[in-house]
Design a protein around this nucleic acid. Structure first.
Lengths: 333, 333
DNA sequence: TTGAGATAGTAAAACGTTTTATGTTTTCGG
DNA sequence: CCGAAAACATAAAACGTTTTACTATCTCAA
């Protein structure tokens, strides 16, 4: 069964292609097409089940009603939840999402941008890796809306939405200190992106502000993408060697690995050993004892992101760049 | 900066558009274009950074190198992991994925199929909801490859990949029985899809085969999409009223809610109260005590799915429909 | 009764490719 | 040195839309 084209509809209705197009695009009134014709055409469209070919449409108009979403890893619950929220909201406005994971690999990220570019996506939502500044700037030069989220790039002048990582981290450490902790460790990753750096800075600053000397020895940087068993081994090492009384994990997957390490060591979390995780996860609520976590307001982030991009898309005029920093909340459990 | 077209390249190289097109598509040899021309054109393409417009390409060729992935909910870790694996494998073969979540809503699912159809995706990977049989059959009639996964539709004749839900469920119950349990509950959902039904049937059959009478009272069907607090309330009810000594949860999110309910009730999991969850989740490994779970072989499912669809895509000939049932594994913890 | 504006509609170009059919030049065996 | 085949290259149609510019008819105020 050959799929229908606008031409088939036109022939069936005995009018021109142009007329059908106007009707489909709601320009019938404006172009003064008679009620009778409108009705007839609409009827034929309905009963024949004709759906415009979006590809042809895109080719002609240069836009696609698709938003490209580039994230680090869809299987990470932080991203998959954000993705779901963004998708939902976009869908309601008639936009579709194409997503892809970069796996924090610059080359793949560049590839993806090219991919999206040649598919003429209307806008980009990106949680960027370091090293794609140029590519993003090229998009901006090309006048495409780009919203960065989760992590900012200082060399890129565009909208950004993210949590206040520095403050959240600072407050977490402060809460440890209030509980009398002094030997506070940080487990983080070695990827060099802004939000990770901020979490680190918050940790450091909080210590110093409270007259605790910062020590490199209490900071464990896990190599990104390394095998989990090795990660766990390194953590065990940290937990055993030092008399640590508290640890902040800079990401949820690190915290999960950390909990596994503790379980293997049979080390109890309790009065003399506290942990806080960055980014909440169901594991933390259900864990015994339950684990405090820094909760990023996903809903709010998604909402802001989508708001910003839709604004951009509707008003061709380039709006003032906005940097929206949303406070994160420490859930004490 | 106007984006380059094939025409610009042709002009710059002093050859025809056709020639450039042949070179881009690797048909240069076959069409006997001279080495010299090939080289020159390739050079110009490289230095100018020209990328073919995929939209135009799609319009002309009728395919897009895009595979549509339709799942229930990307924020569910089962699906997000599968999605990640599928994306990965597809990417390596030069295919992109567009995904969307149905939220188990037939109307949205139909919408999505239409969406994808008008975007000319080359193939579909679908974890279907009930009620879209017709739409899928239409795709098949249109000669588009469709792979169903996770849940099958009996009224649709196409490839299917999924775990052996019946058996996994059966074995879970058997393992309870071996441990001396007799009052075994099932918490499931009320959505009427094959894999949920199979899990239910496995439960029932195992009981009967071991001379335990089946009782409706021990089966709790949670309304899909209902608020979690209500879900938890219903579960508490079940756990309190009856002297249940074991419970099988038919999905991972139900199990997570169940654990929350138990926590609120302060009811311990242990010798006199066992649970098994369907679909593994990090929560279960880290829970104290850790929770047994039925683990679906995600990697294998993703691999099989992608294999099947790529086969379909490369050999225009419609292959024999395959129903691949992959055993699930009960991880006893 | 005229002609200006409103009303109703359409032809054709353009978007950027791929591909078919065709044209020109070169090579080389006899 | 002829002519057929091989080598090299291209023009133009087609994919399915949107949109610009245009034609034709009708209405009604002056």
């Amino acid at each position: 069964m050959k799929t229908l084209s606008i031409k088939d509809i036109a022939v069936k209705a005995g009018v021109s292609i142009t007329t059908v197009s106007f009707i489909i695009n709601g320009k019938a009134k404006e172009k003064s097409i008679s009620e009778a014709v409108i009705k007839k055409v609409e009827e034929i469209i309905k009963e024949s089940g004709y759906k415009p070919n979006q590809i042809a449409r895109s080719l002609r108009t240069g836009n696609s009603n698709i938003i490209g979403l580039i994230i680090e890893d869809i299987s990470n619950s932080f991203f998959s939840r954000i993705a779901r929220l963004i998708e939902d909201k976009a869908y309601k406005k008639g936009y579709k999402i194409i997503y892809s994971s970069t796996e924090n690999d610059v080359e793949k990220a560049k590839d993806l941008i090219n991919m999206f570019k040649s598919r003429k996506v209307d806008g980009y939502i990106i949680s960027p890796t370091k090293g794609i500044e140029e590519d993003i700037n090229a998009l901006l030069a090309d006048n495409k809306p780009v919203i960065l989220f989760d992590r900012n790039l200082s060399d890129v002048e565009t909208h950004y939405v993210g949590a206040d990582h520095f403050k959240a981290s600072y407050q977490s450490i402060e809460s440890f200190i209030k509980d009398g902790k002094r030997k506070i460790a940080l487990v983080t990753t070695d990827i060099d992106v802004e939000q990770i750096v901020e979490r680190f800075d918050g940790y450091k600053k909080a210590l110093i502000d409270h007259q605790i000397t910062y020590s490199d020895e209490l900071v464990l940087k896990i190599h990104f993408n390394q095998d989990e068993t090795e990660t766990i081994a390194e953590m065990k090492n940290l937990f055993l060697k030092k008399e640590i009384d508290a640890v902040l994990f800079a990401t949820n997957y690190l915290a999960i690995s950390g909990l596994k390490a503790l379980k293997q060591l049979n080390k109890q979390i309790g009065d003399d050993f506290s942990v806080i995780a960055y980014d909440d996860h169901e594991v933390f609520e259900l864990h015994t004892p339950s684990i405090s976590a820094v909760q990023q307001p996903l809903e709010e982030i998604a909402e802001t992101v989508i708001q910003l991009i839709l604004n951009q898309l509707s008003s061709k005029a380039k709006a003032e760049n906005q940097k929206v920093i949303i406070p994160a909340k420490l859930i004490e459990r």
